[in-house]
Each structure stands twice: as structure tokens, then as C-alpha cells.
Amino acid sequence: MLITCPYCGPRDVIEFTYQGDGNRERPQPASQNLDAWNAYVYDRLNPAGDHNEIWQHSGGCRAHLRVVRNTLTHEISSVAFARGDHKVAARHKAEGKT
């Protein structure tokens, strides 16, 4: 499986670490709503199809990425920095090819 890191370009999955379900919403730090915390820490979607995931390019630029991956085909339909404020021109886009 390849993941196209917006900074590094397409890299083998061995360079990445799965960092969990991208649908999770972390309660406010001071929240005492245990149900919300429980849902955040333990509840996971298990869709047969597109799944929002967080991956870290731990063997590369170390950026965290939001990845939409099809759990049936491994097809990755989108990859973006988890941080919205990385404005760096991505190489694979700058060169106009993958």
C-alpha cells in the first residue's frame, strides 16, 4: 500500500504509523462528560468502505495526515496534512505529477 504524503510524495506504508480513527472528536480538555470521553477513547467506526484515518509519516517528514482509505480495496482517495496550516508547496503537485 502506498500513501502519497503531501510533502514527501508516494511512499510505502512501511514508512507510516497508523494513528487511529480520524472521526474521533476529543472532548474539551476540562470536560467531565465521561460518555464523551469514552466514545473518544474507545468507540470506533468499522465501515466497509471509505474510512477517515490518521496516519503519521513516521519514517519520513513525521507529519500527521488525514487519509481517506477504502477498507475493502485499500484505495486511498484523499490525503491531507492533519494540520490545516501547512502551506508548503507539495512536491508531487509542484512537479505536476506523482
Binding site: 494513528q19 490518521i54 500527521h64 492533519a82 494540520r83 496550516d85
Partner: peptide, 13 residues
């Protein structure tokens, strides 16, 4: 290290 990077990138950018 990964724990810190995760929170900085994903939770508290």
C-alpha cells in the same frame, strides 16, 4: 515522541 507529535499536529495545532 509520537505521542507529543500527535497532540501537536492533530489535537492542538
Amino acid at each position: 515522541m509520537q505521542h507529543l507529535e500527535y497532540f501537536l499536529d492533530v489535537v492542538w495545532p
